[in-house]
C-alpha cells in the first residue's frame, strides 16, 4: 500500500553564495515542486549552506550513459590545441 503513495524523488542544487553556480547537494522526496523546494531549504541549507536552491524531478534528468563513455568523452582527449599551453610564445611577449 505504501508504495503507491511514495512521493517522487527530487534532485537538489544549492548555490552556496552569490557568484557561484548551483551544485548538486543531494536528493529528497516531495509530493510536488513547492514542497520539494521547502524540504530542500529545511534539509540542505539548515547550516547556512546556501543562498539559492533548485529542485528538479529526478525523472526529468537526461544523463549520458557509462556505456557511451568512450564515444562521448575520449575524442576530446587528443585535441591539445584547445588548451593555451599548446602554443609556444616568444619570451617577453606580454598580455597573452
Amino acid at each position: 500500500m505504501s508504495n503507491s503513495t511514495e512521493w517522487p524523488l527530487w534532485e537538489v542544487f544549492v548555490r552556496s553564495r552569490r557568484g557561484l553556480s548551483h551544485t548538486h547537494a543531494g536528493s529528497l522526496h516531495a509530493p510536488d515542486a513547492e514542497m520539494a523546494l521547502r524540504n530542500a531549504r529545511d534539509l540542505y541549507t539548515r547550516r547556512s549552506e546556501g543562498v539559492s536552491l533548485w529542485v528538479v524531478p529526478s525523472a526529468a534528468i537526461t544523463a549520458s550513459s557509462p556505456d557511451e563513455k568512450d564515444a562521448f568523452f575520449d575524442p576530446a582527449a587528443d585535441k591539445p590545441y584547445r588548451h593555451p599551453t599548446f602554443y609556444d610564445i616568444p619570451e617577453g611577449v606580454q598580455h597573452l
Binding site: 503513495t5 511514495e6 548551483h22 509530493p31 510536488d32 515542486a33 533548485w54 528538479v56 526529468a60
Partner: peptide, 29 residues
C-alpha cells in the same frame, strides 16, 4: 502522505505552468 500525493495529482497542471527558476535551469542541472 496520501493527501499530499492526491493534491499533487490534482494540481499537476498548475505545476507545469510554473516558470523555471532561471532560464537555462535544465541545461545546467
Amino acid at each position: 502522505r496520501e493527501a499530499a500525493a492526491a493534491y499533487a495529482a490534482k494540481h499537476s497542471d498548475h505545476d507545469k505552468d510554473r516558470r523555471p527558476a532561471t532560464p537555462g535551469t535544465h541545461g545546467e542541472a
